[in-house]
């Protein structure tokens, strides 16, 4: 068992016996994971009380690489699983680490409802604009006109602007960085971890194999250069203005940082009124 500040490095938080990982050369997941683990160490949370929950997909494999209580659940269901975990043991710091398709498509309903409830958890959403594991199909995040294996002539669906969606649904902390902004991403994850309530960090990440190659960004380096040349740090931007277009600018920064009562705060308020502290649990035999 650990105290509050455990001496640990990033290697100590990885399951070395599960390496090599499955991620492709040029993938942004390793970089985002490193920022996350570094943030976790700097957050000084007791690591035995940290649980990582993932859904399905390339990002969903993250849970399997971290040496923490970690749950690789079903596609889209990481958030409701995490909700149960948190409510059953409020001591846990629950972090959902999953992909854009997992969280915003198949898991979209759970995403907005957890934000609405202001469930106390941190979401790290790695957005590579595609379904990588299944071969690069269109996601709800795929920019208009982008090519994917299911939009061979270009995507004719309007994508979600995830920060706008999640801010509207009620998240108290919303930020976006890219896999290139390793230090800013790390700092943002630390803030999100310490934020009480539903905190959400979007990490834009390269998927050269399944997305970049189809969209003239054939290597991880090309995609990283695109992020470097086109990212605009825009703290406090109105989330409605941070949608991403193909080859367009990427607004990054902290968009939302507000305070709002969490599910558990409101639950405690209401139940404390219903059951004043002096009324003790009792056995009674005449209730009908």
């Amino acid at each position: 068992m650990n105290g509050n500040h455990e001496e640990v490095n990033i290697e100590g938080l990885l399951r070395a016996d599960r390496i090599p990982h499955i991620w492709c050369p040029g993938c942004g997941l390793g970089s985002v994971l490193r920022s996350f683990l570094s943030a976790l160490i700097k957050s000084e949370l007791p690591l035995d009380k940290v649980a990582v929950v993932s859904g399905i997909g390339c990002t969903g494999r993250t849970a399997g690489y971290v040496k923490l209580d970690s749950f690789h659940t079903t596609h889209g269901r990481a958030i409701p699983f995490a909700t149960g975990l948190k409510l059953a043991n409020p001591e846990l710091k629950v972090i959902v680490f999953s992909g854009d398709g997992d969280l915003s498509s198949i898991g979209g309903n759970h995403l907005i409802h957890a934000a609405r409830r202001n469930m106390d958890m941190t979401i790290i959403c790695v957005n590579n604009f595609t379904y990588g594991m299944t071969g690069g199909q269109a996601a709800p995040t795929t920019p208009l006109n982008a090519r994917t294996s299911t939009t061979p002539y270009g995507n004719y669906e309007i994508p979600f602007n995830i920060p706008y969606l999640i801010a509207a649904a009620g998240a108290v902390y919303v930020s976006r960085w890219t896999a290139m902004h390793v230090r800013r991403l790390e700092k943002s994850i630390i803030e999100a971890i310490h934020k009480k309530g539903f905190s959400f960090v979007e990490a834009i990440a390269p998927c050269p194999t399944q997305y970049g190659r189809k969209n003239r960004q054939a290597t991880g380096l090309t995609q990283m250069n695109y992020y470097r040349d086109n990212s605009i740090i825009n703290h406090g931007a109105d989330p409605r203005d941070v949608g991403i277009e193909l080859n367009g600018p990427i607004n990054v920064g902290k968009f939302v940082d507000i305070d709002r009562a969490t599910f558990s705060d409101l639950q405690a308020d209401i139940l404390d009124k219903a059951f004043p502290p002096e009324s003790k649990p009792q056995t009674e035999t005449t209730r009908t």
């Binding site: 995490a82 909700t83 409510l87 059953a88 059951f275």
Partner: peptide, 30 residues
């Protein structure tokens, strides 16, 4: 709430089933 437990109405039955699995791993009979 009378016995110190937690009730939550989820957004659908998919979420309900996922939540009780999480609850069980969190240590609560669910």
């Amino acid at each position: 709430p009378e016995v110190g437990g937690t009730f939550i109405q989820m957004e659908d039955e998919i979420a309900s089933m996922a939540a009780i699995l999480g609850g069980s791993w969190g240590g609560a009979k669910s």
